[in-house]
Write a protein that binds this DNA or RNA. Structure first.
Length: 216
DNA sequence: TACCAGGAGAAAA
DNA sequence: TTTTCTCATGGT
């Protein structure tokens, strides 16, 4: 019998422990990291964030005041640095105009999601990562690991539209912030431990649930 | 050396 | 409407 998302979560949590994670010290860093990690390994993002901290611009006022051409070299290690400099600037311009994260906290989740998605360079995954980890809203983040892992388990095809997958997960789980934060963290932990740099089914806590274990 | 990573938008079909 | 291309560094 195929396990439910709730059962998969229980197995992951039992294996990795409670994580409820985003590797950032402040909500503002989550926002920056969410843009910089687009199609990029987190290790490269860490270097860029460290550089921003080193330059003392890892805050809204300083970063928003930095032109894209000066920002780009600072985030070079995260790849796509010209594109990401423009995307980050666009997001920070909106955040600054709105009055900062505290003001965003006063906006209802669906309206805030639409506000984020209206920013050029912010797609559904980036918007939901910001909502979940910077603004503590219970939304389910769908990323490449989620699609890969759950399609490998035979629970989804992996090609479904983002919102279809997010709605399915949300319907299968209690709507709890801690659960959604920790579930995504578990998926990333599994992805990093098992899927990269090469598949390691022998250490996968879900191997018994996987119809094609050994050929991830 | 070649491939891939926690995407997104624009262009082409 | 769907598919393909582009953006780019760093690790393996």
């Amino acid at each position: 019998m195929r396990p439910s998302p709730a059962v998969i979560y229980a197995r992951l949590r039992n294996h990795f422990g409670h994580r409820r994670w985003w590797p950032a010290e402040q909500p503002f860093e989550v926002l920056v990291g969410a843009v910089l990690t687009q199609n990029t390994a987190w290790t490269n993002v860490e270097k860029a964030i460290a550089r921003l901290r080193e330059e003392q611009v890892l805050n809204l006022d300083a970063l928003q005041a930095l032109p894209a051409e000066k920002l780009a070299p600072l985030i070079r290690s995260s790849g796509y640095y010209n594109v990401k400099a423009r995307r980050l600037r666009a997001l920070l311009d909106v955040l600054h105009a709105d009055g900062g994260l505290d003001c965003w906290q006063a906006i209802e989740t669906d309206a805030l999601r639409r506000r984020l998605l209206a920013v050029k360079g912010v797609g559904e995954e980036t918007a939901d990562s910001i909502l979940l980890y910077a603004l503590n809203r219970p939304v389910f983040v769908i990323d490449a690991y989620t699609r890969r892992i759950f399609s490998r388990l035979g629970m989804v095809s992996g090609n479904e539209p983002y919102q279809q997958l997010a709605t399915w997960f949300a319907a299968e789980l209690p709507c709890e912030l801690d659960l959604f934060q920790d579930y995504h963290a578990q998926i990333v932990a599994l992805g990093n431990a098992v899927c990269r740099p090469r598949p390691r089914c022998e250490v996968c806590p879900l191997a018994a649930d996987c119809p094609g274990a050994g050929s991830f």
